[in-house]
Amino acid sequence: MASTTMEGVPPGGFKTLGEIDATNDLRIHTKKTGMDVALELLATHSSGAPIVDDQGKFMGFVSEFDLLRAIESGKDLNTVTADQIMSTSHFVANESTTIGDAIRIMNEKHLINIPVIKEGQVAYSVTRHDLLRARIGLGPGIES
């Protein structure tokens, strides 16, 4: 592991998802159209996002593949909604989930990002990029 002497890195390095700055705070409401979801993912260069209800509670996850499957099956992205194309079996984590566990789960389940739940709501998602940055000891704001 790289040296963790950079400003903003706790002694001993990052250990949990709650200690790292995630780069993806995108959340999509259940009733957004598939087209709105697609445009939001494209505009933010995101591969997917958690789907939430009015209270911010995790309901599912939609990825670029979910959108492509909807198109390929003949669904109209202008009328289908996020809750109709989302996956409800996507893994979620909390702030105490270890970085090691998140890496293992993402690898085993072939995930690109994991929503992180805080106080019952989706707070943000961690990406493979976030985990790599944390694992090599790069502190918050390295992209600035």
Rank of each mutant, 00 (worst) to 15 (best):
E143Q: 14
K109F: 00
P115V: 04
D54T: 13
Q55E: 11
G13W: 00
A102N: 01
D66P: 07
T30R: 07
R27Y: 05
V92L: 13
E40W: 07
D21A: 09
K32V: 12
S87R: 09
M106H: 15
I112G: 14
G74W: 03
I114T: 05
S87W: 06
E64L: 02
A82M: 00
E143C: 14
M6A: 15
E143P: 14
L17C: 07
T44A: 10
N107E: 12
L42G: 10
A82R: 04
L26C: 04
T30M: 12
I114D: 03
S144Q: 12
R128V: 15
A102R: 03
E72Q: 15
E95W: 07
S46P: 13
E119H: 11
A38Q: 01
K15M: 11
N107T: 11
L77D: 04
F58S: 09
D21N: 10
A2V: 14
F91K: 09
T5Q: 15
L17K: 01
E108Y: 10
T81A: 04
E108C: 08
L131R: 02
I51L: 03
T44L: 12
E119N: 10
M35Q: 13
V116S: 04
I105Y: 08
R27V: 14
F58W: 04
H110E: 15
G141H: 13
K15G: 08
I136K: 06
P10F: 05
S47W: 06
D130R: 06
D36V: 07
L17N: 06
G8L: 00
P10Q: 13
F65Y: 08
T16E: 05
D21V: 12
G48L: 02
G139D: 06
T79Y: 06
N107V: 10
V116N: 00
E95D: 11
V126S: 03
G139V: 10
P140H: 08
A22I: 14
N107Y: 10
E143S: 15
S125N: 11
N24Q: 07
E72I: 13
L111S: 02
H29S: 07
I51P: 01
G100K: 11
A22E: 06
P50W: 02
I85H: 04
T97R: 03
A123V: 12
N78E: 14
E108V: 08
I117K: 00
S96Y: 11
S89K: 07
I20V: 04
R69I: 09
V62H: 03
M86Q: 02
G13T: 01
V122S: 01
A22H: 09
V52P: 03
V92S: 12
V92I: 09
I136S: 02
M59Q: 12
I99L: 03
G100C: 11
T88A: 09
L68G: 06
F91C: 08
